[in-house]
Nucleic acid binder design. Structure first.
Lengths: 342, 342
DNA sequence: GTTAGCACTCTGTACTCTGGAGTGCTAACT
DNA sequence: AGTTAGCACTCCAGAGTACAGAGTGCTAAC
């Protein structure tokens, strides 16, 4: 696969970079003129013909220039690209953006998504932690009207989830407070998943049968934990409208449709959680047929020592990988630090 | 203004309805044929010419049909339109959609926005309550690392807000619990705004100087309340892509841009909070120049007896007012009921 | 192995032409 | 006086044609 001559690689790189710049089929003359290579257009044409045979280039029609294929981008990212480090300037921008912020902790994810989009000029995407994997810090029950109870669950990193549950019987506010205390002492420092199995175990325990209060508390907390979806934040949709490849409304619609089905998106991003570092999906590699002409760059982020979620950037295949990769990488690190429990 | 003959009104109505259906300039023949009026195209042309003089109609060019102006839509909405009641079917759909939902209470607003968008086929919009006007139910401080404290504020209707604050000194978890209890007893049943002024008053009180704990608690809660933005949820952007008037990407972009500036949008919707019932802004009436070709239908919603926020639908001026108005109206009522503290 | 030259191909744009839809006006009709 | 039929006129959208520009592939020369 890698048996390209040095010169071919150079030319391929030049074509890809030109295409990234212009979003238009690249002709042999443009390459011969603009890039340092002192070769005539004719020579370059020969090389281009070879590259086309190898499926690195495609021509929309006989007399247009050539367009790099997904395969070419993949090769570019794997072998040709030298990823820079992030700008000092951008680094500060990110820091400032986060600092400015001091309100609802849940907002942190939306903010992250916004940061990614505004720095990359594409779309920013953040998948929030599955609550089950996060560490548990605090639980609280608050009586609303009738039998409705508001359960509030706080993770170690300060993320708050809440949920309305229905109790089987009428409980007083005081009961509620006592139950909260009970549970907090019992369950401190477990992950939500552990918490859950612990609760189920306790419920079967002999002692609990006689401790009515604890039994009720456990029952409520079981309800609270029973299902906790992840959320996906996507910001910067406007940026995509800017891209010439989506000048046509039909394609636009395709892309927007793709985001309606968050399930697919989540499962794509889930795959990145397993290993560290930046992942790149080019074109059809993302297995979402609505997103065939787009690339996704992702990185997992952690809370403490555990990977809890994924963030990234979605843009056209023709995106500025060298520029975006460090942004995604750095943002993931900053977010991880924010979620760390010192 | 209203000195149109009955016949003119009928014709204007017919033109508007035809235009809503087709999104295309309406010709005299179409009206003469399709609508019950037994008049020849020529007669209708005469009337149309009059209506054009009165600024109710405009023609894009000599030999196209006519398009209703904003003024015409305003007249239509005020004088011609008979608003139906909501479908039994849709009513159930809304109920079901809300019931299905039992997770994070904050999600209720996003869900509402989604309901509005999917029923109207335009965009749904919800402005969340300014927290200051809502009734307060519960406050809770939780110690994170170091001096960082997570403050959780629960409103009467079960909406949870949280915020990280920084304490001046190191406080133990036990202190935190005691402080929470203190405050909850002291402040039960006040609105956030009242709460705030109460706290400030207490802080100046002699007694408090000696009660160190209470002083600290008040200080923390003051920090917690100091600023609380509203959020805007917009769902169903894809629906707008379906509309023929936005087939052109340039216009599309305009609209999407408008939503980036949430400030403008909020101030528009704020104006609706003052009075009850459905408000309608047609075209330029919304004072957002990016949104000139769009109409906004809004209704305030309440929590208990107090108006706390606004929801609505944004669509092209040419939208199905008769269909959308009851949807907005009914949804506001259902949401109010959900937020009511029984 | 590289390059100049040339014939060939394809697209995008400009231009023209034509049929259709719609108007405005006038004159005839009720 | 209000309504209508008829007709000339206008404008647009779409089809067809011509043409310049960009690019290729091939061949022959360097």
């Amino acid at each position: 696969m890698d048996n390209l001559s040095e010169r071919s690689k150079h030319i391929l790189e030049a074509i890809i970079e030109e295409y990234i710049r212009t979003a238009e089929p690249v002709g042999s003359r443009a390459i011969s003129r603009r890039h340092g290579l002192t070769l005539s257009p004719a020579t370059i044409r020969n090389v281009m013909a070879d590259l086309e045979d190898l499926d690195f280039l495609a021509s929309p029609h006989t007399s247009a220039g050539r367009i790099p294929t997904d395969k070419a981008f993949r090769f570019y990212v794997d072998s040709l690209l030298t990823v820079g480090t992030i700008d000092r300037e951008q680094e500060e921008l990110i820091q400032r953006q986060y600092r400015l912020y001091g309100k609802d902790v849940g907002e942190i994810f939306k903010e992250t998504s916004r940061i990614l989009s505004s720095l990359s000029h594409y779309m920013g995407i953040v998948v929030t932690p599955r609550f089950t994997t996060t560490m548990f810090r605090h639980i609280e029950f608050i009586k609303l009207g009738g039998r409705r109870i508001l359960a509030i669950l706080v993770s170690k990193s300060g993320i708050v989830q809440n949920k309305i549950i229905e109790a089987d019987e009428d409980l007083s506010s005081e009961d509620m407070v006592r139950m909260s205390n009970y549970l907090n002492n019992l369950l401190k420092g477990l992950s939500i998943a552990e918490l859950r199995s612990r609760i189920l175990r306790e419920m079967q325990d002999e002692k609990v049968r006689y401790d009515e209060m604890l039994a009720k508390a456990l029952k409520l907390s079981e309800q609270t934990l029973d299902e906790n979806g992840t959320e996906v934040f996507i910001e910067g949709r406007v940026n995509i409208l800017e891209q010439p490849e989506f000048a046509d409304v039909g394609k636009m619609r395709e892309v927007f449709r793709a985001f309606e089905e968050k399930g697919q998106l989540i499962s794509l991003l889930d795959r990145c959680m397993e290993s560290e570092g930046v992942h790149i999906f080019i074109g059809a590699e993302n297995y979402m047929h609505h997103l065939e002409s787009m690339s996704v760059i992702t990185a997992p982020y952690m809370s403490g020592k555990e990977t809890v979620g994924v963030l990234g950037v979605i843009g056209p295949t023709r995106m500025g990988y060298d520029r975006v990769i460090p942004i995604v990488d750095y943002t993931a690190k900053v977010l991880s630090k924010l979620l760390d429990v010192e």
